[in-house]
């Protein structure tokens, strides 16, 4: 064995050694639960975990994923993501642009716009729950909806209302992302365009937006994943109701696993959610990456 091979081996071993802790953590908290969840889907779970479960192979996967309930879950989840992600990005970008000027006191606005990032989902949900309460809520009175069943108990408005709370809560995060991106834009390019006589809107559409595309792409990916996994606000605001109107995939998983004691069913839904997010992320990467400009030099 030559000295070179030996050195390479040693370096390789060191490399593996260094990755080992991360691998261990991932294995324990990500890969093992993932495999175990997929495995659970092969069993009809008993109502309580001390009883034997029945192996049914892919039968449960077929039954759950082929059910109309799953399709409706998926439709509602997609609608929720559509309501939250584009709106969130547009609002965040708009606010970041407004706050990207040098006027006295702009820091106060920046603080206000980014403040929702420090608000937990629970706090945001409880605040909006009170605002939307049909008996005592300020928003209910403003919209003339006082008395009777409120927005959250209305099957047409429950999901949009939850989406609105989600958008509000995400504003801070998107605002910070967009602000940071705006500040790192190459000034000379913008100045050159200005000198060439490009108007504000032309500069924004032709130069700022393309230069922002990596961060927009990042916000979209994070937003879609976050949207698919939004749980807290739904649990606190509507519990999936009324009449399933806000029953998104993740909430169905929760109900099946923890309220209806059906972990097998929930496992199948979890794997489906995992698969959907995996595919969506890949699609986003391959489809959008070609249109995204990472070049800044």
């Amino acid at each position: 064995m030559s000295a070179k091979t030996l050195r390479r081996l040693r370096e390789g071993a060191l490399g593996y050694l260094l990755v080992l802790p991360a691998l261990g953590a991932f294995g324990l908290f990500v890969f093992y639960p993932l495999v175990k969840t997929a495995y659970l889907g092969f069993f009809l779970a008993p109502p309580t975990p001390n009883l034997p479960s029945h192996y049914v192979g892919f039968h449960q996967y077929g039954q759950v994923l082929g059910s109309s309930e799953f399709v409706s879950d998926l439709g509602r989840t997609a609608f929720f993501v559509l309501l939250t992600v584009p709106t969130g990005i547009v609002v965040g970008l708009l606010l970041a642009n407004l706050a990207h000027t040098k006027v006295p006191g702009i820091r106060a606005f920046r603080t206000i716009y980014s403040s929702t990032v420090a608000t937990s989902t629970a706090v945001a949900s409880v605040a909006f729950l009170t605002l939307l309460n049909p008996q005592i809520g300020v928003l209910s009175y403003l919209f003339g909806k006082a008395g009777g069943n409120g927005v959250l108990a209305n099957p047409h408005w429950a999901l949009p209302a939850v989406a609105m709370v989600t958008v509000w809560q995400n504003i801070g995060f998107t605002f910070i992302l967009m602000s940071a991106a705006l500040q790192s834009l190459p000034q000379e390019v913008l100045e050159a365009a200005k000198v060439d006589g490009a108007s504000g809107s032309v500069r924004f559409r032709q130069i700022v937006l393309p230069l922002l595309s990596p961060i927009l792409f990042f916000a979209a990916v994070i937003g879609v994943i976050g949207g698919f996994q939004s749980f807290g606000q739904i649990d606190l605001l509507t519990q999936g109701g009324p009449n399933h109107a806000s029953l998104v995939l993740i909430y169905d998983i929760y109900q099946q696993a923890f309220q209806f004691n059906n972990p097998g069913y929930a496992a199948v839904l979890s794997i489906a959610l995992f698969g959907i997010l995996l595919v969506l992320t890949f699609v986003q990467f391959f489809f959008f990456q070609r249109r995204v400009s990472y070049a800044s030099d």
Partner: peptide
């Protein structure tokens, strides 16, 4: 409001 992560193994 504890969120359920994907693949929370039971």
């Amino acid at each position: 409001a504890a969120a359920v992560g994907v693949g929370a193994g039971v």
